[in-house]
């Protein structure tokens, strides 16, 4: 790692001051620390957000489930409130990485990074969540903008994510066994107004909504209604799977998610 200063403020305002002075926000560091070890980043300072109480925890805010940006995966997985309101979200958080990663990694860190195979972006997009930053609110449909790319501006901090509560939802992940990332993962959410389907791990452009499946499932919410696999063009191809394999997994995991949602 290149040398940097490390600060761990206890208030959001102190963190924002440190970030505007050139610091980079740090969540649980489960991606950023390995990145630093490879010298792929050279921040002057890291501003650890995990000591800020106002960024942590889960609560109902109106009719939405609000998760603080510095809330760890283990806390979302264990939260009685999340299990009661959106059990699929608790289940997703409980499948990220391994127990030690879940004891450090945060939702804000995950969606700020927007790894194309990360789990959380699929939940945020499928549930039509709102990403709250220190500056504004961003709809999920506008937030994810491609591989490791989001609507966040330099130094903008994810304060929290507000999730609408669906009638039913489920996440199904086909695990890449070495990394525990999603080789392909599908989050399906059924609302009174229709069904949203978000796919992670498959596309070269990162998480995306599978609109054909959404249309079919909105009129008939059953695994048999899931349409044929999407075209393989633009899907990720690597040693773990071809684009065609991932396209097929999109259909299979969507069917499994619908079946799991019940």
């Amino acid at each position: 790692m290149y040398s940097f200063d490390y600060v761990k403020p206890s208030s959001l305002q102190d963190a924002l001051d440190a970030i505007s002075g050139g610091g980079q926000p740090l969540g649980g560091g489960q991606t950023l620390i390995p990145t630093l070890k490879q010298r792929l980043a050279m921040p002057e300072a890291l501003v650890d957000l995990t000591g800020i109480a106002e960024l942590k925890g889960v609560s109902m805010s109106g009719d939405k489930l609000s998760v603080g940006g510095a809330t760890r995966h283990a806390d979302v997985a264990a939260s009685a409130e999340v299990k009661a309101k959106i059990p699929a979200l608790a289940a997703l958080a409980g499948q990220i990485g391994d127990p030690q990663v879940r004891n450090r990694g945060t939702i804000g860190g995950s969606i700020a990074n927007n790894d194309p195979a990360a789990c959380y972006p699929s939940a945020v997009l499928a549930l039509g969540a709102t990403v709250r930053t220190d500056k504004r609110e961003i709809a999920a449909d506008d937030y994810f903008q491609g591989l490791f790319t989001t609507a966040l501006e330099e130094g903008e901090v994810v304060v929290g994510v507000d999730f609408p509560v669906p009638e039913k939802a489920a996440y199904q992940k086909f695990v890449q066994p070495a990394s525990r990332f999603a080789l392909t993962g599908v989050f399906v959410a059924k609302f009174a107004g229709g069904v949203r389907v978000a796919v992670t791990g498959a596309s070269q452009d990162g998480v995306f909504r599978w609109s054909e499946a959404e249309a079919a499932l909105s009129s008939n919410f059953s695994a048999d209604a899931v349409p044929a696999a999407p075209v393989a063009d633009g899907m990720i191809g690597d040693i773990h799977g071809t684009p065609e394999y991932r396209a097929h997994l999109v259909q299979v995991m969507t069917k499994r998610a619908v079946a799991a949602a019940g």
Binding site: K8, G29, D48, T50, A74, N103, R104
Partner: peptide, 15 residues
């Protein structure tokens, strides 16, 4: 009291 990977945790974060 919680297990973490000490190769992916900063010492300063454990103040």
């Amino acid at each position: 009291g919680e297990s973490v990977k000490s190769c992916t945790t900063f010492a300063a974060a454990c103040e």
